[in-house]
Write a protein that binds this DNA or RNA. Structure first.
Length: 113
DNA sequence: GTGCTGACACAGG
DNA sequence: ACCTGTGCCAGCA
């Protein structure tokens, strides 16, 4: 019963998702689907929803779309981190067009997958 | 109960 | 490279 009503306790699902993201080693990235698979529950959309709310507490830039696209509006922020971590990128060479993560090389080697 | 929305994935054009 | 539609799962009006 009476569990002290913690003001909005983070659901266990969100907790697991954040945990996985925290464990992504620098220089590598995972897709939303990968994280969902690692957690073993929900889908990429659920992961996205969780990240939208608590992403600020974890290295959100290490989670990208399956095509290696960066978050709309945060490309700049992500690039800064990738440059500092040495994350392999695919340069488009076109000005104005932001580069994308080279999934073939940057994808995390998480054994959960 | 129905429908829309969302930091997604994938196939087609 | 871009856009569109469909499938998926959960939350919310």
């Amino acid at each position: 019963m009476a569990e002290s009503r913690a003001p909005h306790q983070i659901g266990e699902y969100a907790d697991q998702v954040l945990s996985v993201v925290e464990h992504i080693p620098p220089g590598t990235v995972l897709t939303y689907g990968d994280v969902a698979a690692a957690v073993g529950r929900g889908g990429p959309r659920q992961v996205g929803t969780v990240m939208a709310q608590y992403g600020g507490a974890v290295p959100w830039w290490r989670v990208v779309r399956a095509d290696g696209r960066l978050l709309p509006g945060h490309e700049r922020r992500a690039l800064e981190n990738y440059r500092a971590e040495g994350t392999p990128l695919r340069d488009a060479g076109e000005p104005g067009a932001y580069p994308r993560v080279d999934m073939r090389r940057a994808r995390g080697d998480d054994p959960a997958l």
